[in-house]
């Protein structure tokens, strides 16, 4: 273990490519560790206007991954998952669940990600009393945010993640305050009484929608799509979800039926929400883009949504 820090230091001296390769190796470790390693701990989450603490237990046995998350302050939000599928959740978190993608579907794929993000080892750090390596995950274009990731040297798991905007300002902090990689007792994975069983909505193998986007930031693909009743009217809202493997955003489209509504935008820490009115042959539609992407990117996506075979009408 003593050799690693030295390697990092030497790597910094000798060449940048070596450093990048080292970062890639760490990302590979992270990708496999999340499915193999049992661990338990508590972490804090902070974004503009919100601070909360949570406990997490993950137990891996015979290839089966059980995971329990519990908010420790405020309402006891709780989720239990087995192999990525939600088993139970508290009311607040559980309005409706879509079936999770196949277990091997959307894993962290460092190789694919490296096309949109640059990984670099930036130094040693210490988180939750454990020795960690700090990686800079820098966006290669202006359409996504960068991260600073601190990975546990023993397990490769993320002990700390900072999301940064293009100016280097902190948008959110995820940080363990206590972490153990010891085997986890099965009792600790048992959901509490407030955790209610979830009916999972099945999903199509290939997402499909009458809507599509004329423009997407490079690397983003359609992950899911469906239609739901509007939370505030009898209309049906089309919903599309996109991701680049790390960042995600959702697009909601609700017919206005002549209603006078202005455009709007707001930001909650890393999450931006942009609403834009667009015209279709069927009348005006309000497009709302919600996600962890820069404001400008969200606006451009909103203005690029088209219904059916309609083309850009500039």
């Amino acid at each position: 273990m003593r050799v690693l820090p030295l390697y990092v230091v030497l790597g910094g001296w000798l060449s940048m490519p070596a450093l990048a390769a080292d970062a890639g190796a760490w990302m590979d470790r992270l990708a496999t560790a999340e499915q193999k390693q049992s661990y338990a701990g508590t972490f804090v989450y902070e974004r503009n206007g919100s601070f909360s603490s949570h406990a997490v237990w993950q137990r891996v046995e015979g290839g089966r991954v059980q995971e329990r998350l519990l908010q420790l302050d405020g309402p006891p939000a709780e989720v239990v998952r087995v192999d990525g599928q939600v088993q139970c959740a508290t009311d607040e978190l559980a309005a409706q669940f879509r079936e999770a993608q196949a277990w091997h579907g959307q894993r962290l794929d460092p190789k694919a990600l490296s096309e949109w993000y640059e990984f670099r080892v930036i130094g040693d750090s210490r988180v939750a009393g454990r020795s960690a390596v700090a990686l800079a995950v820098t966006a290669r274009d202006q359409h996504r945010y960068g991260f600073e990731l601190h990975l546990d040297r023993d397990t490769g798991l993320p002990l700390k993640s900072l999301m940064l905007n293009e100016k280097g300002q902190l948008l959110e902090r995820f940080q363990f305050t206590r972490f153990t990689a010891d085997p986890v007792d099965e009792q600790l994975l048992k959901p509490s009484a407030v955790c209610k069983d979830i009916a999972v909505v099945a999903r199509d193998a290939t997402p499909d929608s009458a809507w599509h986007s004329d423009w997407l930031p490079p690397g983003f693909e359609l992950l899911d799509a469906n239609e739901r009743p509007s939370p505030a009217s009898p209309e049906t809202v089309a919903w599309l979800s996109y991701g680049d493997g790390l960042a995600k955003f959702s697009v909601f489209l609700e017919p206005l039926r002549g209603a006078l509504v202005e455009d709007a935008r707001s930001q909650m820490g890393p999450t931006v929400a942009v609403s834009k009115r667009i015209s279709t042959a069927d009348g005006d539609v309000m497009v709302t883009v919600v996600g962890e992407i820069p404001l400008g990117t969200a606006e451009r996506v909103a203005l690029s949504m088209r219904y059916g075979a309609e083309q850009a009408q500039e």
Binding site: V86, R98, S241, G243
Partner: peptide
């Protein structure tokens, strides 16, 4: 919710 639970484990 989709970001948290819709895509397998993370």
């Amino acid at each position: 919710q989709q970001a948290a639970f819709g895509s397998g484990s993370e």
